[in-house]
């Protein structure tokens, strides 16, 4: 066997710090995606046609262009406009922005799933628009879409290796550096692949459990 297990074990600790960075990017990126996506979804239902159109176009544009290019855009262009941000912050921003276009669609489905009568009852009770969204619509819209949001969390996690392109020391970049130092790419790259596989399989299992729980919540 050409795969050197001893070497593989010896480099394993080097991935610890990288895994922390990957997790930071994943969780912060998802948090941003959850917030921004909600903003787009609500803006798309705005009574102001221009606001609704712009939000719709923005979502479509973000969804139709590569994350890598968006990442480059933020990494190279943003500093020209002033703000100095670290590669990690750039990565979080790009991941959050990119996935907000997907979460926006999920929110939209959830919001459309709330019965019309709920809006009507809220109007009949004279609840304002903000109160209606916050207390009546969103609590009902979010529970059924939790599994879908969970799937996008996993998808976002799997895109973090792209951040290696802007010099962030996450898992893949660490593997590449080890490879460049030792001229052995097989072990570090395989380890990273295995790590992603294990973590996303675990996350998928959790999501499926969540799905079942949400079904029970809705029907029970």
């Amino acid at each position: 066997m050409i795969f050197d297990w001893g070497f593989a074990f010896s480099i394993l600790p080097a991935f610890g710090q990288a895994l922390v960075v990957t997790m930071q990017a994943t969780l912060a990126g998802m948090a941003l995606a959850l917030v921004l996506g909600l903003v787009w979804a609500i803006a798309r239902r705005s009574r102001n046609r221009l606001v609704a159109f712009c939000a719709g176009f923005l979502v479509e544009f973000i969804r139709s262009t590569p994350l890598l290019v968006q990442l480059y855009f933020l990494f190279y262009v943003l500093p020209l406009w002033g703000p100095r941000i670290t590669p990690l912050e750039t990565g979080i921003l790009a991941l959050g922005l990119h996935y907000s276009a997907y979460t926006a669609e999920v929110y939209r489905a959830g919001i459309n799933g709330v019965a019309r009568g709920q809006w009507e009852a809220a109007l009949a009770l004279n609840l304002g628009r903000a109160v209606t969204w916050r207390t009546v619509i969103l609590p009902q819209a979010v529970v059924p879409i939790l599994p879908a949001l969970g799937n996008y969390l996993v998808a976002l996690f799997k895109e973090t290796p792209l951040l290696s392109a802007i010099t962030l020391l996450e898992l893949l970049h660490t593997a590449k550096l080890i490879g460049a130092d030792t001229f052995r790419y097989l072990e570090p790259l395989s380890l990273v692949g295995a790590l992603f596989l294990i973590l996303s399989l675990m996350a998928s299992t959790l999501t499926r459990k969540l799905e079942k729980a949400c079904d029970r919540f809705r029907h029970g």
Partner: peptide
Amino acid sequence: RSHIGMVFQSFNLFPHMTALKNITLAPVTV
């Protein structure tokens, strides 16, 4: 609308709130 109230054929209660919360929501926020 503050003069008018309505009861619907399909109830349209808020399913994620208790009976009490359904009733107190509007007086508190409106």
